[in-house]
Simulated scan of single mutants.
Amino acid sequence: MNTIYLRRTYMHDLPAIKQTIEDGRQALKAAGSPQWQDGHPTVGTIINDITHHQSWALIINDQLVGVATLQPGPEEDYHNLAGGAWYNDNDHYLTIHRVAINHQCRGQHLSSFLFSNLLTIGQEKGYTDFRIDTHSKNKVMQELIKKFGFRYRGTVEVADRLDPHRLAFELNLSTNGLPVEYHVDNNFMKPLVDKEK
C-alpha cells in the first residue's frame, strides 16, 4: 500500500525539488506556455522557500514527487489587480506558488491531493482566504484551481521576462464555526491507495 502525505521541505530535498520544478517547466513548455521559461523559479527562490518554512513536499513511499509553496501575503504583485477586484481585501491570505508534480506521477490526481492538503494546512493556521495566479495558457492549473472553488478576479503582472501577465484567482472559505475537517476533503487519493492493497 502506498504511503502518501505532505510535509515541510528541508535542504536535503533540494535536488529532488529542482528536478520536480524542471519537470514542471518542461510540461509548461510542451503545453505552449511561456510560464517558467525565463529561468524562474530560481534555485535561490527554492532555497528561500525552504529556509522560510513555506515549501511543502508531496511524498509517496518516502520519495518526493510534488512540491508547492504556501506563502503568507501580502503579495506585492497582487496590489495592482486589473480588470476586477479581490473579494476580500481586508483579511490575511496565503498565496500558493511554484506547484509542480514529478513527470512520472502525472495523471494520478496528485495535484488534487496536494491542493487539498495545502488548504487544510492553511485553515489550521487560521487562514480562510487563498490566492493564486497562473498563465492563460496553463489550462491544467486553471482547471485544478477552479475545481477547488477559486474564482477569477482579474489580471496581475509578475516578474517574468518573457510574459508577465497572469490570471489571478481567489478562494474565500467560510468556516461557519465548524472544525477544519468538515471543509476540506483529503480523500482524493483513497481510490488509488485502495488499488495498491
Rank of each mutant, 00 (worst) to 15 (best):
N2A: 08
L6W: 09
L6D: 06
R8V: 09
T9N: 12
Y10G: 13
M11A: 15
P15M: 05
I17M: 04
T20C: 11
D23E: 08
Q26G: 08
L28T: 03
A30H: 12
A30S: 11
G32M: 05
S33G: 08
Q35F: 09
W36N: 07
W36S: 06
P41D: 03
V43K: 08
T45F: 01
T45R: 00
T45H: 03
I47F: 13
I50A: 04
I50P: 04
H52P: 05
H53L: 02
Q54W: 03
A57M: 07
L58R: 02
I59W: 13
I60E: 04
D62W: 00
D62N: 01
Q63K: 09
L64E: 04
V65S: 00
G66W: 04
V67L: 08
T69Y: 05
T69D: 10
Q71T: 01
P72R: 01
E75G: 02
D77E: 15
D77N: 11
H79R: 10
N80Y: 15
A85H: 15
Y87D: 14
Y87V: 07
N88Q: 13
N88V: 07
D89Y: 09
N90V: 15
Y93L: 07
L94A: 05
R98K: 14
V99D: 06
V99G: 01
Q104Y: 06
Q104E: 11
C105K: 09
C105Y: 14
R106S: 00
L110M: 07
F113V: 02
L114N: 01
L114C: 03
F115P: 02
F115I: 05
S116Y: 00
G122P: 10
Q123F: 10
G126P: 11
Y127Q: 12
T128S: 13
T128L: 12
T128F: 09
D129R: 15
D129F: 12
I132F: 05
S136N: 06
K137D: 10
N138P: 04
V140E: 11
V140L: 06
I145D: 01
I145W: 08
F148E: 00
F150E: 10
F150Q: 10
F150A: 08
R151A: 13
R151F: 09
R151D: 13
R153K: 14
E157G: 05
D160Y: 02
D163M: 09
P164G: 10
P164V: 07
L167I: 15
A168T: 13
F169G: 03
E170R: 04
G177Y: 08
L178Y: 14
P179V: 09
Y182G: 06
H183V: 06
V184Q: 15
V184N: 14
D185N: 14
M189P: 01
K190P: 04
P191I: 03
L192I: 08
D194L: 11
K195F: 08
E196K: 09
K197S: 13
